[in-house]
């Protein structure tokens, strides 16, 4: 029998469900309009022209990333392959965060703001136009949560047979 969660550890499963739900939501927003998401991926230009066999890598990303977020979020919430799911979500989140930061340095994305952190543009995250500093802060919080709640070995589960 595993040790029961105690103290501040008590809400960890609940927090994990909430974290998983956030990623399911992000994935769903992208999944419901695949072409819009493909265009967002294309606008970053980092996968432009790359192919895997006959398939443009942008198509693979537009098809695969939303599913990975939905499945990853569900697995994280359910505690199944939790660390593997969290690792993928963290990898993609870190990559997209770097891309959002890189794109925010381009003044043409929002000519009204000179400071990169105040610029607003559609990051392709499924939530429409975002202000850079808010998006980066949100992603930092999510990344930290993924590491603490998803990637870190769970002491209670380690005690399980």
């Amino acid at each position: 029998m595993s040790a029961r969660p105690t103290g501040w550890n008590l809400p960890r499963p609940l927090l994990r469900v909430a974290l998983g739900a956030v990623f399911v939501g992000y994935g769903w927003l992208k999944f419901h309009d695949p072409y819009a998401y493909l265009k967002s991926v294309h606008e970053y230009g980092v996968l432009d022209g790359l192919k895997l066999g006959s398939m443009p890598v942008e198509n693979l990303a537009a098809i695969g990333v939303p599913a990975l977020e939905i499945i990853g979020g569900l697995l994280l919430a359910l505690g199944i392959w939790r660390r593997g799911a969290a690792a993928w979500l963290a990898l993609f989140l870190a990559a997209f965060t770097a891309m959002v930061f890189w794109r925010s340095l381009d003044p043409t994305v929002d000519p009204e703001h000179a400071q990169w952190w105040l610029r607003a543009f559609d990051c392709g995250c499924g939530t429409g136009k975002v202000i850079v500093w808010q998006k980066l802060t949100m992603n930092a919080v999510l990344l930290t949560a993924l590491v603490l709640l998803g990637l870190r070995r769970d002491p209670e589960l380690q005690a399980a047979p």
Binding site: D33, P34, Y35, D48, L60, L68, I71
Partner: peptide
């Protein structure tokens, strides 16, 4: 996780009314 997600991704894409053609160069 990757195998599960990719398998479901392509299955869902094929059922999606606005699903992408995987080998088409849209741009």
């Amino acid at each position: 996780v990757a195998a599960t997600a990719l398998a479901l991704a392509f299955a869902a894409n094929s059922l999606h009314p606005q699903g992408l053609e995987s080998s088409r160069d849209y741009f």
